[in-house]
Design a protein around this nucleic acid. Structure first.
Lengths: 199, 199
DNA sequence: ACCTGAACACCGTTCAAGT
DNA sequence: ACCTGAACACCGTTCAAGT
C-alpha cells in the first residue's frame, strides 16, 4: 500500500482547498459542501474547522488561489505578446475567457462572494487588486501605443475589464442566444467586443 | 381580524414568489430556503411542492418575474428618451444599473441559474429573450442615428449589454476599488463606459 | 496543535393521509 | 386538486474529548 496517511502533516489546509476545487468542478456550486470536502481529503467532517473559520473562509481561500492562477495566465499571455499591442489585447482577453471556461463554477465563485469580504479576507482583496493592477499596466501600454483611447487609465481599464467580464458572464449563464453562437465562433465574438474598445 | 386566510384560494403560487423575493432581499441568496418561503406565505413546508417541482423551479419563477420587471423599466426609459438618442443610451443603461442595485441578490439570481435551464424553464427563456430583443431594437435605433457603430445589430447589442452587465457585476461584487468609487460618481462611471461604445 | 465523534438546528424532498 | 405532518438523508457548526 503506497499511500497510507500522506496528508495530515501540516498540509491539510491546502489539501482541503484542492479537494474543494475538484468538487466544485464536478458537482458545481450547489454540490460543494464542507462535509464532502473533508471526506475527499480523508478527514472527519469537523477537521476543516481547525484550518478555516467556516465554509465561507474555505471558499475565500479557493477564490484567492483562483485569482493567483488567473494572474499567472494573464501575465504570461501579456508577456508573450508584449511586442504586438494589437494582438496582445485580444490574446489577454482570450486568456481570461479560457480561464473562465476551464472551470466555470470556480470562476463564478470567485466573482460571487459576500459583499463584506472587503475586510474579512485581506488575502483575497490583495490578490484581486493585484489582478486589476496588471490589467491597468496592460491598458496603459495599449494607450501608449495608440490602441486604446486616452483618458484616466483606471477608467479605461475598468471598461476593458468590464466588457470582457460581461461577455464571459453572459456566455457562462447561457444568455447568448444559440443563433449567435452558431454563426460566429467564440474567438470572433470576443474580437468583435475588443474592437469596440479600440480608438 | 381583517385578514384570516386571504391566501390559499388559488394564488398561493404567486404568494410564494412574492415571499421568495422578500426573503431574497432580506437574507440574500444563501438565506433563501423553501421552508422559510412556505412559512412566510403561511403554509406548511411541503405545500410549495403543489406548485413547484423543486426549489430550482421556484427560483426560475422568481427570475422570470424579475425579467418581466426589467423589461418594463428598460422599455419605459427607452420610450421616454426616444427623441434624444444620445441621452437614451445612457438612461437605458442607468435603468439597468438601478434595477440591479434595487435588489442585488435577485439580480444575481436572475443571472446565475443552472446551465441546463434552456429546456427546463421555457418561460424564463422567453422572457430573457424578450429583453434581448428590446436591447437590439434600442441599439438598432442608435445605429440609425449614428450613435453606435454600424455592423451586425446582434453583435453590437451584445457589446452594449456586455459592457453594462460587466460593469454592474464588478460593482455588485465589490471588485471596483474604493479609490475609483470615491473619486467618481456611479453615474459618471457609467457614462464613461457608454462613451467607449460610441462611434 | 490538530483531529474525532456526538449532538443540534436547519434544509430539500417524498409520501401517505386528510379535506 | 391542494395541503399537512411525519420521515429520511444531508448539511453547517459547536464542543467535549482524545492524541
Amino acid at each position: 500500500m503506497p499511500k497510507k496517511k500522506t496528508y495530515h502533516h501540516g498540509d491539510l489546509k491546502n489539501a482541503l482547498i484542492k479537494a474543494g476545487v475538484a468538487i466544485l468542478a464536478k458537482d458545481g456550486v450547489s454540490g460543494l459542501s464542507l462535509r464532502k470536502v473533508a471526506l475527499k481529503a480523508g478527514v472527519s467532517h469537523s477537521a476543516p474547522y481547525s484550518h478555516f473559520a467556516d465554509k465561507q473562509a474555505l471558499i475565500a481561500a479557493i477564490s484567492t488561489e483562483g485569482f493567483r492562477q488567473l494572474y499567472e495566465r494573464i501575465n504570461s499571455s501579456a508577456e508573450k505578446y508584449k511586442d504586438r499591442p494589437t494582438k496582445q489585447l485580444v490574446e489577454v482577453a482570450w486568456a481570461y475567457v479560457q480561464f473562465a471556461m476551464d472551470d466555470p463554477d470556480r470562476f463564478k465563485v470567485m466573482f460571487s462572494d459576500v459583499l463584506e469580504k472587503e475586510k474579512e479576507y485581506p488575502e483575497f482583496v490583495a490578490e484581486s487588486q493585484r489582478n486589476f493592477q496588471l490589467v491597468k499596466r496592460i491598458v496603459e501600454a495599449n494607450q501608449a501605443s495608440g490602441q486604446l483611447r486616452s483618458g484616466p487609465t483606471e477608467l479605461v481599464a475598468l471598461s476593458a475589464w468590464g466588457i470582457v467580464h460581461g461577455f464571459v458572464m453572459l456566455l457562462l449563464e447561457g444568455q447568448i442566444s444559440h443563433t449567435i453562437l452558431e454563426q460566429t465562433s467564440l474567438r470572433e465574438l470576443l474580437e468583435f467586443q475588443i474592437e469596440s474598445l479600440r480608438k
